[in-house]
Design a protein around this nucleic acid. Structure first.
Lengths: 190, 190, 190, 190
DNA sequence: AATGAATGAGTTTTCATTCAT
DNA sequence: GATGAATGAAAACTCATTCAT
């Protein structure tokens, strides 16, 4: 899998994301992806050795993208609540702006495509979040409970809300995200 | 005379759930399902016209099951917080006791199998939850904000936590659910 | 294949004929036949060992029936033209009154069901026709040409006309059959 | 680049015709066709969406072919009997030279594969024959009777004779066709 | 004998992957 | 590298036949 043409890779990724959002991981074929990416089926195999490879590469791409967005604008040196709010907003931002990627990542967890190795790599990416939560507890901003409980609570509530918004077709207003943050903060604050 | 064996539907459902949890919707074949259900492939087609039909029927079954569990022990006449806690616990209970069903339902949202019709039917099932939330707001227990915001917040946070527990292999203690409820309540309370 | 219940055999035969007329030999299944005959699939196998057996038995039945009708009212002692006209009319009669059987017999010639043995038996049934044609030639009524040429000419022209009538939905009038006989006679007469 | 091989359609058609002649429409499978056409099963589905499509396409092809042959060498301006004899000979020619196609067309009339649409199209193809028969009647060459009666008589008698010849294994001599034409002409002439 | 559910071999069809151009 | 036709293994589905009741 050599990146012979960055544009093509992008086309393939975006075509795949579009299709997965429409029909799920179970419903897509290599030739559909090729057609949606406006290339020949054979060309797909120049860029990716096989289907699992393509899915794994896209998975990694999305995870990296997510992580980049999560920590955008974030400064460890800033006060805790500032940092927390930035990251929280970034979580929302990623899921809102890249809903197709969020859906794809979701679908991958139970797919036979993603290898344990790929999963392991992605686990490491969110380490900085742990650090933040840890600090929040030390500085008495957050309840002193298990990190994963805090983190899953935060991400789960965001996830579900964005999903709902997308499926119901309701636009998300900044007042909504404001309320959502308030709920989250009330939940987690010490 | 030989009659249709009603336990067979149950066998097929449970085999399918097991396989979906293991390999995702994308990874399962009709013959695998048959084998796991210890019946012949052809028999599958006596009970379900085709693969989408099987998946849709299982989807409906799981949704019904979920709804039944959600309102188990719930009395509209009880005080609000009692009722709320029961339902909250039931949400947790369903996802913990029937994690395979929760996973399956999740996977279905983007699958090409579930028809719009099936989706519509399931939407109607959670109407009573709205009523409870509505009452909670009237009685000033809950924050006066959009119902779906409250509901998705609640279910999202539960979802994610149970998922995490299952994948990490960590047993859920009753102290964990107690904490989780506390977080949720702090978030939603007026 | 024991004839346990004559009624059932008749039901099976008539159901099969109806279905073959509708969808051809290639389109019918044992369970369809059973359903059309208002019996269970398993019951079919009490009356006929298997599908080829059923088709062969029906084939034999139809051939016998055809032969019976062909020679109905026919007296070898009658004058040639009288006998010829009777048989000619009977050929028409069989195909008109039992079009489904005629269609079935037609379809069978190229089917993998009919064994050489069955075909052989049926060949023998039309021997008396040869005799008649032979006599017609001797008595100088018919052209002195190959028997099969005469016979296929006769039956072919009848066949096609009845087929056309059935497919176009046009009722056959006795004036039509009169004309048809005239054509045939003009062709074959010495 | 690789282009669709147009000879492949011909290979598939000829393989199908061969098999249908051998075992009838009811006895052929897609993989047998593929094998006989020396291609992979999947390749069949590049050229034809499914089995009914293949059969319908072949049906249309054979009907077109038949029609072309029927009117080969035929000039409307020629004297009636010349034109009539040419077409009559062409009818014989098609059935003799392309007996497999004639058999296939015959088998199709009651098959579940041929759609009403396909049947309709083929009906239109023999319109010119009507015109000829019409003219024959006007010019007092033919008996003044229903067109279809004349036409089915003609084609039916040819059909059956060629069928007989093929199944009995008897070679058709030009003297046979001469006689057959004589019979037909005697029948139809005014 | 009658039933119709169950079976599994066989059929149709799909699709990841290869290959000739 | 790009193409899309070709491949064939595997999936979905059918159906003649059996079998428990």
């Amino acid at each position: 899998m050599k990146f012979k043409d960055e544009t093509k890779t992008a086309q393939i990724f975006s075509a795949t994301l579009k299709l997965v959002q429409q029909k799920g991981l179970s419903g897509i074929t290599m030739s559909e992806i090729a057609k949606a990416a406006r290339i020949a089926t054979g060309t797909l195999y120049i860029y990716f050795k096989n289907k699992p490879d393509l899915i794994n590469a896209l998975f990694t791409y999305c995870r990296k993208n997510a992580t980049n967005i999560y920590f955008d604008n974030y400064e460890e040196s800033a006060p805790f609540k500032t940092g927390f709010k930035i990251i929280w907003s970034n979580l929302v931002k990623f899921r809102m702006d890249h809903f197709d990627q969020a859906v794809f990542l979701d679908q991958c967890y139970h797919s036979p495509f993603i290898t344990e190795n790929t999963k392991e790599i992605t686990r490491k990416m969110i380490q900085p979040l742990y650090k933040l939560v840890e600090r929040g507890k030390e500085e008495k901003f957050l309840k002193d409970i298990d990190n994963m409980l805090l983190l899953t609570f935060m991400s789960g509530s965001i996830n579900e809300f964005i999903k709902y918004s997308n499926y119901s077709g309701k636009k998300i207003l900044s007042s909504d995200t404001g309320l959502l943050f308030q709920l989250c903060w009330d939940a987690l604050k010490a």
